[in-house]
């Protein structure tokens, strides 16, 4: 797990050959695995790439046990 960096994120985008509606869910899984959560910046970015609203993506993410939308503190 690493700290969120826009650069690392951009590399993930490159690795999957661009984010589309068809691979978004799988891609967000990779973001979650890389950073331990899906940051708001990412949601905003993939919303712009896919045309899905941020609201929809947020709503979706929060329905899964294995997705986090905030970095969880250890306390």
């Amino acid at each position: 797990m690493q700290k969120f960096k826009m650069e690392t994120y951009q590399n993930l985008v490159k690795d999957v050959g661009g984010v589309t509606a068809e691979n978004l869910f799988m891609f967000l899984g990779k973001v979650q695995e890389a950073f331990g959560y899906v940051p708001r910046e990412v949601v905003r970015d993939v919303a712009a790439r896919t045309g899905f609203s941020e609201t929809r993506i947020y709503g979706a993410l929060t329905s899964y046990r294995d997705f986090k939308v905030r970095l969880e503190c250890d306390d």
């Binding site: 509606a21 869910f25 899905f52 993506i57 709503g59 929060t62 329905s63 899964y64 046990r65 294995d66």
Partner: peptide
């Protein structure tokens, strides 16, 4: 495309699974 499930029983239900792939709520 290989998609890793996200730890929810309900995504075994076909529409919940479809919703998942659409980046919608698992329902």
């Amino acid at each position: 495309q290989v998609v890793k499930g996200k730890g929810l029983y309900i995504t075994g239900e076909e529409f919940a699974l479809i919703s998942s792939l659409e980046t919608r709520r698992a329902a």
